[in-house]
């Protein structure tokens, strides 16, 4: 009887650990999906002057955002494919709150770069840059440059609510 109890105990513990480890592994996926969902909602839910292009290359992303990849858990970036507009969506998940703070600095620098690029070139793009939505929630940092900044902010807030 004792022998049988021991076996059940061992098997039960193994099962418990398997479930626990699986849960840890699955945590990252949930966050990733969330970032994708937010970026996609913004692409689909707002009006854009031109079709946005998704950036999937890390080195291309770093052409625009000078982030330390050790700070970044996940990211998603959509930008103007022609460069004719300042329209952009960037969503980052930092590894922790401090990392998110540094990512936010990089996002603010990106906004300044956009201002520098467009102020003398296409002044009509300036309102969306000056009113850019830069939103942080926990480890997440979001940037949206769109003519309808109020709608963009509303969507982002609702997403994190």
């Amino acid at each position: 009887m004792k022998k049988m109890f021991g076996r059940f105990l061992a098997a039960g513990l193994a099962l418990l650990m398997t479930v626990a480890l699986a849960a840890c592994s699955g945590g990252g996926e949930a966050k990733t999906v969330k970032i994708e969902d937010l970026a996609k909602q913004l692409v689909d839910g707002l009006t854009w002057k031109e079709e946005l292009m998704e950036v999937t290359s890390e080195s291309v992303m770093q052409n625009y955002y000078q982030v330390d990849m050790a700070d970044v858990k996940y990211w998603a970036l959509y930008r103007s494919s022609s460069g004719a507009t300042a329209e952009e969506i960037a969503v980052f998940e930092g590894t922790d709150a401090e990392a998110a703070g540094r990512i936010k600095d990089a996002v603010s620098t990106r906004v300044e770069d956009l201002k520098f690029a467009f102020e003398d070139y296409v002044p009509a793009e300036m309102p969306k840059i000056e009113n850019a939505v830069v939103y942080t929630s926990g480890n997440y940092v979001v940037l949206v440059t769109n003519d309808d900044d109020a709608a963009a902010l509303d969507m982002v807030k609702k997403f994190f609510a």
Partner: peptide, 16 residues
């Protein structure tokens, strides 16, 4: 599945 940047790839516009 998720690639090196940790983001799951979703579909690009057909033209791209």
């Amino acid at each position: 599945q998720y690639g090196e940047n940790g983001t799951k790839n979703y579909e690009l516009p057909k033209s791209i």
